[in-house]
Design a protein around this nucleic acid. Structure first.
Length: 590
RNA sequence: GCACCCAUAGCUCAGCUGGAUAGAGCGCUGCCCUCCGAAGGCAGAGGUCUGAGGUUCGAAUCCUCAUGGGUGCGCCA
């Protein structure tokens, strides 16, 4: 099932009174601090570290006491006197000077009803929406996608979706690695070992199977065979100069690759507004280098055209054109930014690219800055860490190679499939489809729940496991409540606004309230793990409530039942939203 | 040699701008389906937050140094 995120935009938080509990409490706190003549920066309210004691806390009195050399308990006391009369919470002061806020039950229930009534779960639309371009994916042509490509694709896609939901405009560009020495290498390899593919008259169709052989062989040769490497360089330049047979071969390689890439991306639910690649900028390179040289931004050094990036020499210069006259990806990336800067509405480019490229991006951004491309545009490198194997080294299969994405997909789907067969809970003809939905959830949540900046260990066994903190766990929570709602409806029971919190209802409501903050953090940090981890926390609270509050049982009055359904329905609604933001489907059954 | 990143339970990871008893998942032990889906819930064991200094009323969090690991360093992308 899907919500249709675009449709949610009409639910502009037009009623801006609808803020989170946390915001409401903070507002009161700010007023109180102001009344006491304390700086409002101390009035920050956060969720309590001690949920057993209270809901929210403010540590500001301690900070005020520190800066004014006063007794923290007295400061807290003074602030509290200005909070009397509010109907939202009870406040008390704890040990060194914490202000503890406990939300009153009626306020909590009223708030829960508000959250349930808002399809956006109280997430406001960004006031001036910005325009983003998310550069993710970045696969190389001629090379099949492997698990290493998952991070960029899944994180990039999630960022794009989340930015849109937050009220921004966001497009994706796959930015194919379809140009450069790698292509020259493959061309030379084909010349040597499969010339029949070169002749455009009799040319055989190229398949990914061919490319899987050619690419590694060619890049391997290039490392060991100097003569081959030189030929590859020459071939690259010939290709870039437009030599016919090379260009035809390249086109066919590119087409075959794109077809395969689209299949993989499609399975993952990853899509791009632009299928641009490095080759797109070929014609722009020479004029760009020329004009930058003329304006003094670039200079000739050691036979190459470079742009200096730092005064102290700590950061090497960016090579725009090598001493043989060839252009590398430094030039391509600047040219790409040049094109992007032409869109007057575009505010920010996000590069969702491996952290190992961080120096390169510093160089490119410095060059772009000097070239005047950042007058109305900014760019960020949203770096992600390496995917390692259980040995702590970059992930390899047992055979030593990289694992094809297609193989991972098969493996995961099979694992889910056999589980579905065993459980027999899904109609046989739907199992294939549902298995894919669950497998995708496992893969995506696995990626998104980690801090993208850190390296992480890819453990095949862990991926094929669906208990605990996983995507399927969250899906399961939704599915189970979905069937409960359906069963209840058969009994004539509908969700109502909550009349009682029930056991675990407080924790659940507070979890629901935390969503806008988690989303905001993801937007500002460009890190989807805050949304992912929020979804998990919410699912935990939801399951706890579900377990402790029966709906369809003897002794439960219709009013109680409806009230509980209302709580669960609110939770499910936000869970489904979170999953959709992560690109995870909710199966009908599982 | 220079630069950047990382170090938290047996394993994989959270821990927001410094705060009250450092939290999850997996694994392990024990409970909970005559009761809405057990891919679930509850409870338990498991920690000198790599080490040493420093700032602070207070440090996993900030600063310095050390150790251990990863990554990158002008003509590949």
């Amino acid at each position: 099932m899907r919500i249709g995120l675009d449709a949610l935009k009409q639910f502009n938080a037009g009623e801006k009174i609808m803020t989170t509990l946390q915001n409401q409490i903070e507002k009161i706190c700010i007023t109180a601090f102001t009344a006491s003549d304390f700086d409002t920066k101390f009035a920050v309210v956060r969720e309590s570290d001690r949920p057993d004691l209270t809901d929210f806390q403010c540590n500001g009195a301690l900070a005020v006491a520190k800066s004014q050399k006063r007794n923290p308990m007295e400061v807290a006391q003074e602030v509290v006197t200005h909070m009397s009369g509010n109907e939202l919470f009870d406040v008390d002061i704890a040990k060194p000077g914490f202000l503890n806020f406990r939300v009153r039950e009626d306020a909590l229930m009223a708030h829960l009803a508000k959250v349930a009534g808002d399809p956006r779960s109280l997430v406001p639309l960004a006031e001036p929406g910005q325009k983003f371009l998310v550069d993710y994916g970045g696969p190389n042509v001629a090379k099949e996608m492997h698990v290493g490509h998952l991070r960029s694709s899944i994180i990039g896609q999630a960022l794009k979706t989340i930015l849109r939901f937050a009220g921004h405009e966001a497009d994706g560009d796959v930015h194919l690695g379809d140009w450069g020495l790698q292509m020259g290498q493959v061309i030379c390899y084909v010349e040597d070992h499969a010339p029949e593919y070169l002749d455009s008259e009799t040319a055989l169709p190229i398949s990914m199977t061919d490319l899987q052989v050619w690419y590694p062989a060619a890049s391997g040769l290039s490392k060991t065979d100097e003569a081959f490497r030189d030929r590859a360089r020459a071939a690259t330049q010939a290709l870039q100069a437009g030599q016919n047979d090379y260009y035809n071969l390249w086109t066919r390689i590119r087409d075959a690759s794109v077809e395969s890439l689209k299949r993989d991306y499609d399975w993952l639910g990853v899509d791009f507004e632009f299928w641009f690649g490095e080759s797109r900028y070929q014609a722009a390179l020479e004029p760009l280098v020329k004009s930058l040289t003329e304006s003094g931004v670039a200079e000739l050094d050691d036979g190459a055209v470079i742009i200096r990036t730092s005064d102290d020499g700590k950061l090497p210069p960016l090579i725009m054109q090598n001493s043989n006259g060839g252009f590398g990806y430094g030039a391509t990336d600047v040219a790409t930014l040049q094109e992007r800067a032409e869109d007057p509405n575009l505010n920010t480019v996000l590069y969702v690219v491996d952290a190992r490229q961080s120096m390169h991006f510093k160089q490119v951004f410095s060059a772009a800055e000097q070239a005047g491309l950042f007058a109305n545009l900014s760019a960020e490198h949203c770096a992600f860490g390496t995917v390692n194997g259980t040995d702590g080294k970059p992930f390899k299969t047992r055979a030593g190679g990289t694992m094809r994405l297609a193989d991972l997909i098969t493996m995961m789907s099979d694992a889910v499939r056999s589980r579905l067969d065993e459980a027999n809970s899904v109609d046989a003809n739907a199992r294939e489809f549902v298995a894919a939905q669950i497998a995708k959830a496992a893969i995506k949540f696995g990626e998104l729940s980690h801090d993208r900046e850190k390296d992480y260990v890819f453990n095949v066994d862990q991926f094929a496991q669906f208990e605990g903190k996983t995507g399927p766990y969250i899906q399961y929570t939704c599915v189970r409540i979905g069937t409960l709602l359906a069963n209840a409806q058969k009994d004539g029971l509908k969700p109502s606004s909550p009349k009682e919190l029930g056991e675990g209802g407080r924790a659940l409501t507070l979890a629901l309230d935390a969503f806008p903050a988690a989303l905001a953090r993801t937007v500002t940090s460009r890190k989807p793990n805050f949304v992912a981890n929020h979804a998990y926390r919410l699912a935990e609270c939801t399951n706890g409530f579900y377990q402790k509050n029966r709906v369809l049982s003897a002794g439960v009055s219709p009013q109680e039942a409806s009230s509980r359904l209302g709580v669960l329905n609110a939770a499910r609604q936000q869970l489904v939203l979170c999953l959709e933001l992560m690109g995870i489907d909710v199966p009908e059954q599982m």
